[in-house]
Design a protein around this nucleic acid. Structure first.
Lengths: 276, 276
DNA sequence: CGAGAAATACTCGATCTGAGAACAACCGCG
DNA sequence: CGCGGTTGTTCTCAGATCGAGTATTTCTCG
């Protein structure tokens, strides 16, 4: 609804015209960034959430985020800042976090206060310490995705699903899109390694794929595939100190290679949802 | 820079705190949508541009776009509206146009007037009539990409490149991202058909791929591949009335199938830029 | 020490890919 | 009308890739 006046259409035309010269003449739209930060803890996918300290949705859990500082920062910078601020993640550790833009959400009713456009970001983080709640958050935590069934993709939410945590705003939808994106990013980029430390074994890498895709993978074929993709991983020449906790030989260690795209890609096993 | 006051940091903290209750307290950021609409005319890729009637960048060509109407519309709606308004594309024809969000651009200096965040959209259109310039445009036209070498991908801009048209704002960068996205969308979605009429031949489809990827494709293999991907195209049982203008038999006609993702995908021939 | 588990390597048949050839239908031209 | 050249479509064939299964070795745990 337009602010006030008799003829909304005329008002709009007037505003359009004014805005061609001065965008300040426009009814404001606020811009926020929200970050879907994913990590693996004990091989379980977690998302970083904060508990809102103020209305709306006070007491609800939400994605970390906040308003873009007008004239001061780029969207990428804003996302990195919010991630750091709301969680106490050091700027140094931030360098080990992959951060990319996910998409923007602008339904007029998505925030009850006013029209807020949110630019969502997706982050892949290695296992980080528990977060510190920032200024406008009552709490912050890595929440296992299993506690949020509702928003998750096709692989979760079977029978016996827990009392799902309700997310504020449209953050459940954003999280859903983020998971879709994450799953497909693993297919054609080497970003799975962003969930791991600087050195890792092929099995650890496979565990990342299995948890995010929600499917068991054939160990032998996975091994062959990873090593055959040029630039995905490079050997350190070292092995783990000990075998796995349940037996097995010591595994060779690798670090991330210099590839930015996997060629050929690692495709998910038969997904029939592709044909409409 | 913050508006006024002594200590910028304190100002910011104050604003952050206020905004937790009322986002209106924030220095405003404007939100626009800009559309990169692509089409093929005589098998050449064209982008829809408008000539700016007002400063800044008056007289420059720019992507069609405009401010989001606060409280009234979703981003997708805004993009469709701008596309229709600035170009005279009917809402009916709009249904044959594929429109998807590309990404958001928010460098503070990207608009000299104020901090403007632009949500960019990517559109694939069949060959449409010449556009009508809308209210705040001096002109509108489908511009061949060859006239814009600077922004284009790796396949253009050889020697003898024309006097490139300069685009307003950061629209050259947005266009570059749009082309990257378009090229990769052809790989794993059936969207190439969005550039064609309701019925088309495999050769016409191949021409779309060749123009957008900038590479000749093997006709026989392409044919086999297209027909083997379930749901990509379905036969109409008809053929063209006449053979091609330079000879050859009449070609079978197809229409778009019901697949939304191509499985398996059509991958571009060897791209070595993938490994960093 | 023996059972079980995991890391890695190897095998095999089915499938897919790229390159090329075959062939027939069709154009425009002389 | 007939001919050369072009194009749509199908085939062939060798190499790469894939999924599934197996083998071997080296661990940990009890």
């Amino acid at each position: 609804m337009p602010p006030q006046g008799h003829d909304p259409a005329a008002d709009q035309a007037e505003q359009d015209w004014l805005a061609a010269y001065d965008p300040r003449a426009f009814t404001p739209v606020a811009v926020t960034v929200d970050v879907v930060a994913l990590t693996l803890r004990q091989n379980r996918l977690h998302v970083l959430l904060v508990e809102r300290a103020a209305p709306p949705f006070q007491g609800c859990w939400a994605l970390p985020g906040g308003f873009v500082r007008a004239g001061q920062e780029d969207l990428d910078q804003a996302a990195a800042r919010e991630l750091a601020e709301e969680t106490g993640v050091e700027t140094a550790t931030l360098r080990r976090v992959h951060l990319e833009q996910l998409g923007s959400y602008g339904r007029p009713e998505r925030d009850p206060r006013m029209h807020v456009v949110s630019v969502a970001y997706l982050a892949f983080a290695p296992d980080l310490p528990d977060p510190q709640a920032g200024s406008d958050a009552a709490d912050a935590a890595w929440v296992p995705l299993a506690a949020l069934d509702s928003a998750a993709g096709p692989h979760r939410g079977g029978p016996g699903s827990r009392p799902a945590v309700e997310l504020a705003f449209d953050h459940a939808a954003i999280l859903g899109d983020a998971l879709d994106r994450a799953r497909s990013k693993l297919e054609y980029t080497p970003l799975a390694t962003a969930f791991l430390g600087p050195e890792f074994t092929i099995s650890e890498l496979r565990a990342v794929y299995e948890e995010i895709w929600g499917e068991k993978l054939h160990a032998g074929n996975f091994h062959r595939k990873i090593l055959s993709v040029p630039g995905f991983v490079e050997s350190t020449g070292q092995t783990t100190e000990r075998g796995g906790s349940r037996g097995g030989p010591r595994a060779r260690l690798y670090r991330t290679g210099d590839a930015r795209l996997l060629h050929p890609a690692l495709l998910r096993p038969d997904r029939e949802e592709d044909i409409r």
